[in-house]
């Protein structure tokens, strides 16, 4: 990794979570973005980390409770009369 700005690549790793979650103050955020612009390795780490989170979230987005499992849940709790039928 290159070291052309005040921040080192190690600084980027230390602040990576907060940067991705938008929890950093504007000054540090700008410095990190400047570093990322000039450091291809850090840019790849940031981009692939963001993409990893996005893919993991999307991989699960279609999971919902199967109808049979839902019926058994309502029955277990003696709430059959409130169970929406298919």
């Amino acid at each position: 990794m290159t070291h052309e700005h005040d921040l080192t690549c190690q600084n980027i790793i230390e602040n990576l979570n907060a940067y991705i979650d938008g929890e950093l103050d504007d000054v540090l955020c700008t410095e990190i973005e400047a570093h990322i612009q000039s450091c291809p390795d850090c840019r790849i780490v940031v981009n692939t980390l963001k993409k990893t989170i996005e893919l993991c979230k999307n991989a699960d987005s279609e999971t919902s409770l199967p109808a049979e499992t839902r019926h058994r849940l309502f029955a277990k709790l003696n709430l059959e009369d409130y169970d929406k039928k298919d």
Partner: peptide
């Protein structure tokens, strides 16, 4: 019981997903 059922409706998907993961 009606409120229990409402809580089930609103939360069962997310608790199932958590268990699955």
């Amino acid at each position: 019981r009606a409120v229990f059922a409402q809580v089930l409706d609103q939360n069962s998907d997310r608790i199932y997903r958590l268990g699955l993961k």
